[in-house]
Structures are given as C-alpha cells and as structure tokens.
C-alpha cells in the first residue's frame, strides 16, 4: 500500500514538473518575440514603403531613377517606335509580352536591379546593360543576354493622376 502511495505521489510530482516546464518554456519563447520583432523594419521605415513619383518632368526618351524602399526604380518614357518594337517581340530568355509589363505603353516602370546578382544596370543605346557580368535588357526591361535569368521586375504601382504614379501599391 505504501508503495502505491509513493508511486502515485511521484506521478503527480512528475506531472506538476512537466506542466511547469511547459508553462515556463512557453513564457521563455514568448519573451523572444519582442527581441526578434525589434529587428524587423521599424514603423518609420515601413512608412517609406511607398514612393510617389512625378512623371511630368521626364521627356520622351528620358529615364528617371527614383528610390523605392531603398531600391532604384527606372521610369522610362518610351517613344512610339520603341513601343512598337517592344510590342512586336516577346523578349529573349524569359518571354513575356510587353503589354503585361506596362500599365500605359509610353511609361515603362521597372526595378533597376539586375536579376543576376543585384547590380544596377546602365541605360546604353536601346535597353540596359549590367556592367557587373554583362547581362543585357531591352527597352521593356526583358533580358536578352545572360547571365541574368529573369526580366527586370515590375514593382506594384498605379497612376494616381495622369502624370503621377504611386510605387508600392498596385491600386488605391
């Protein structure tokens, strides 16, 4: 009888210790949350998640670079010939029709970061060339020569007014 008593007691004791360990462990894990969260972007950084860009000052054929979330975004004012040339082809390595890459054909908006290893390509002649490893993009930002694997990315944006876009959101 005394044996069963001690057995029951030790069971109860083990249960209590297990419950306490779980509760304490959960608390210790919860304490990690604020520490980890503090390394995420702070609210003032998040406030810069969108960028407004004014298009009125960009002449036909001109490229403006604006910073969005710390990354360069190319805004390229294309002339009708360039638009026609781009709409005629689907690009090279990563085929995609030009219509899918623009909201209005005269304005090309792409993130200016080479999809190979993250350098910023330069506007040279028609299209862009990345000097880090020689990738080339056409006037729709599509890759036409490697080593870049993909076309320049199109950020989410929408036209706030006829000559103003908001980068960072795809609609109001």
């Amino acid at each position: 009888m005394s044996e069963s008593d001690t057995l029951g007691d030790s069971k109860r004791r083990n249960f209590l210790i297990k419950v306490t360990t779980v509760v304490g462990g959960a608390g210790a894990a919860a304490v990690c949350v604020p520490f980890v969260a503090s390394m995420n972007p702070s609210s003032d950084v998040l406030a810069k998640a969108t960028t407004e860009a004014d298009l009125s000052g960009i002449p036909v054929g001109g490229v403006h670079t604006v910073a969005w979330q710390g990354k360069p975004v190319f805004i390229f004012h294309r002339d009708p010939e360039e638009i026609k040339a781009m709409e005629a082809s689907d690009g090279g390595f990563d085929p995609e029709p030009d219509q899918q890459r623009v909201k209005r054909p005269e304005w090309l908006v792409v993130i200016g970061i080479c999809t190979h290893l993250g350098c910023v390509p330069n506007k040279e002649g028609p299209g862009w060339t990345c000097h880090c490893h020689g990738s080339q993009y056409d006037d729709s930002g599509r890759v036409v020569r490697g080593p870049a694997p993909r076309n320049l990315a199109v950020p989410p944006y929408y036209f706030v007014a006829d000559n103003k876009i908001l980068i960072g959101k795809s609609k109001a």
């Binding site: 210790i17 306490t20 509760v23």
Partner: peptide, 17 residues
C-alpha cells in the same frame, strides 16, 4: 497574470521537491 500563475506553479514544484 502569466507570471502569477508561473510563480504559483514554481512554488508547488519547490514545495514538492
């Protein structure tokens, strides 16, 4: 609230041990 519960549990663990 959590700490009060945890401390109670720790008290009983201590007492049992």
């Amino acid at each position: 609230g959590y700490l009060v519960i945890l401390t109670l549990l720790l008290y009983f663990v201590k007492k049992q041990i």
